[in-house]
Simulated assay, not measured.
Amino acid sequence: MASQRLKRTLRGALTATAVAAAASLVAPVAHADPQPTPNNNASEAVKKLNELSKEAEAAAEQWHKAKDDLGARKAEQEKATADVQQLGKDVEQAKAKEAEFRVQVDKLTNASFQGARFNQLSALLVSDSPQDFLDQMSALELLANDNKQALDKLAGVKAQSEEAERKAKEAQTKATKAAEDAAKIEADLAKRKQELDAKVNQAKEQANRLTSAEKAARRSTGEEVNVGPGSGKGYEALQVALRQRGKSYVWGATGPDTFDCSGLVVYAFRQVGVQLKNRATYGLINEGSPVSRSQLQPGDMVFTNNNNHMGIYVGDNKFVHAPTEGDVVKVSSLDTQQFYAARRV
């Protein structure tokens, strides 16, 4: 029995050796490099696009703010430059008056000096009558009064001249400062534009990765709305904004065919005769009067996502806005955003 078990063990070992030897003679299998896995997770793709879009939108609003600041500094520079020119004319006029009154004062001073030697006693001695004496004294008093008035006027125009020169220098300093600030903002504007372009390109690339169904969903004009009666410029602007539903989002656009978020709001109010002073959300949030979320009315401007996005309140917790890349002007629930503030124009 033991010999039989030994034989079976030897046969098994020989068989395993033969199989291993045969396997070593077979050509190795070629393995191709692994292919990139297609992104079939739609929610992740959309989430990534939303993140990139928020970054791009924040950069866009900062860029708009820099442009608003540049416009303000240039306006200050123009006003200060105009003030310098006007104040320069004022200085010339004041100096001309000063020279005119100085001549008059010099003449009166000389006459007063001559009159001082013709005192009351002299007037009495040379007068032919009491009336003549009174006439002589009246002339002396008149001369003294004229001299005082002339001196007062000279002091006044001299003070005006000095004040005009002070204001001219101050205006020149403001003009120089505004020009320097504008130059700095322009340099910063170029930098922010590069940052914006980079983020926009990233968002566009991500938008192209969406499926056809996801792209179609983003082209929807959003929730149905039933806006009740209202009044005021904000309500009129809301009607304009609602008519833009379906138009594409484009960074930096202010209509009439494409919009970004603040561009839509500025456009809507401009169409009803309200020229908002700012273009960026950072400036628009200071226009009008503040409104709490619980007191929102159709037509109020609403700011979301840490003031990097905005739209116009429709009612029923909804607002019309231009969302982001690959999207269109639509109505959405405010619950899809992080509410930040609201203003009533």
Rank of each mutant, 00 (worst) to 15 (best):
P34V: 09
K48T: 10
G326W: 07
Q149F: 12
L70K: 11
K199L: 08
S129V: 08
V250E: 07
Q62G: 09
T324R: 08
A182Y: 09
G228N: 00
M310G: 00
G255R: 03
Q86A: 14
A66V: 05
A182P: 13
A280S: 15
Y249T: 09
N41L: 09
A75I: 02
D300E: 01
K191I: 13
N308F: 01
L154N: 07
S43R: 04
K107R: 03
K54L: 14
S3N: 15
E55M: 09
P323T: 03
R218D: 11
A2K: 14
N286Y: 12
Q202G: 06
I185V: 12
S138Y: 14
G273K: 02
D316K: 10
R11K: 09
P28H: 04
E170I: 14
A22R: 06
Q104N: 01
L296Y: 09
A21T: 05
E44K: 00
V105E: 09
E44G: 04
S294F: 00
N145K: 15
S53A: 15
V250S: 03
A268P: 11
A111F: 08
A207D: 12
A30R: 01
E325C: 02
V329L: 00
D69H: 04
K184G: 06
R209W: 11
D300Y: 11
L276S: 03
R166A: 13
S161A: 15
E195I: 10
A116P: 06
K174R: 14
